[in-house]
Simulated assay, not measured.
Amino acid sequence: MLKIIHECGDNRAKDRPMDEAFDVGARLKQLRLSRGLSQRELAKRAGVTNSTISLVEQNNVSPSVSSLKKILDALPVSISAFFAGDEPSQPQSFYRQGELTEIGDGQLSWQLVAARRPDRRMSIIYERYPPGADSGEEMLEHDGEEGGVVVAGQIEITVNGEVGVLSAGDAYYFDSRLPHRFRNTGDEECVIVSASTPPTFSDAGQEQHHA
């Protein structure tokens, strides 16, 4: 069931290097119509209610990362393509902070490196979780492996029912096909630098979603 976050619109705007907030509703509607899908059909494919799709397209609610991924998998469209646009960019070696693509949900920030690189074979993400933020009530599952190092703060990670609380300097590495979830249960922002390969979380069409 879709997790709704009512207060995330302004936060998403602050995380993006642009004057206006990203229009999630308009982008979802444009992709849905380009594939000839009704709201009812997309909702059926994604396993959510018709009203959920309607509310998201009207920007009346904002889905968590896991819930948005579930909807995009039904199109299918990758999270990185959703936020970065479908046109690939020329490969480059260096990226300034403003060139990273925000794929978070406004409550948490996930900034993806080289989102539109056509031959990208891994995902590197700069993650920021304010107190209380989490990746969604539904567990994430996708092909590949992922790992990361906590740079600051504290994070609670659940992997296949096992719960670990990591602090700055601690690290994790697991099979991404196992159901997993990230939550900041502390009272300060948590910062993580993570990597996954293949980049199946943000590249739909190659992944299998089990939620």
Rank of each mutant, 00 (worst) to 15 (best):
M1L: 03
L2E: 05
I5N: 08
H6L: 11
H6A: 12
N11I: 01
K14S: 10
K14R: 11
D15H: 02
R16S: 13
M18L: 07
D19V: 11
E20D: 07
A21H: 00
D23G: 05
R27H: 09
Q30K: 12
L31S: 12
S34A: 15
S34W: 08
R35Y: 11
L37P: 14
L37D: 13
S38V: 15
R40N: 11
E41Q: 15
K44W: 10
G47R: 01
V48E: 12
V48S: 07
N50D: 15
N50E: 13
L55Q: 15
V56C: 13
N59E: 07
N59Q: 03
N60Q: 08
N60S: 10
S62R: 08
S64K: 11
V65M: 04
V65E: 00
V65S: 00
V65F: 06
S67T: 11
L68I: 09
L72M: 10
D73V: 09
D73E: 08
L75M: 14
P76Y: 10
P76K: 09
V77E: 11
V77A: 07
I79L: 08
I79D: 00
S80D: 05
A81W: 09
F82R: 08
F82N: 05
F83M: 07
A84G: 09
A84T: 06
G85D: 12
E87A: 06
Q90W: 08
Q90G: 05
P91A: 05
P91H: 10
Q92W: 10
S93R: 15
S93F: 11
Q97R: 13
G98R: 11
L100E: 03
W110C: 00
Q111A: 06
V113C: 06
R116M: 08
R116H: 07
R117G: 05
P118T: 09
R121L: 12
R121G: 15
M122V: 08
I124Q: 03
I125D: 02
Y126G: 02
R128V: 04
Y129H: 04
P131D: 11
G132W: 12
G132T: 12
E137C: 00
M139R: 00
L140M: 01
D143V: 04
D143E: 05
G144C: 04
E145I: 09
E146R: 07
V149Y: 09
V151S: 05
I157R: 07
T158L: 04
V159N: 08
G161C: 14
G161R: 14
E162A: 08
V163I: 14
L166K: 13
G169N: 13
G169Y: 14
G169Q: 14
A171G: 10
Y172L: 10
Y172S: 06
Y173N: 15
D175K: 02
D175T: 10
S176G: 08
S176V: 04
S176W: 00
S176F: 02
L178Q: 13
R181S: 05
F182D: 01
N184F: 10
G186E: 09
E188N: 04
E189R: 04
I192H: 02
A195N: 08
S196A: 05
S196F: 04
P199F: 01
F201T: 02
F201E: 02
S202W: 00
D203C: 02
G205Q: 03
Q206T: 07
E207W: 00
H210C: 06
A211D: 01
A211R: 01
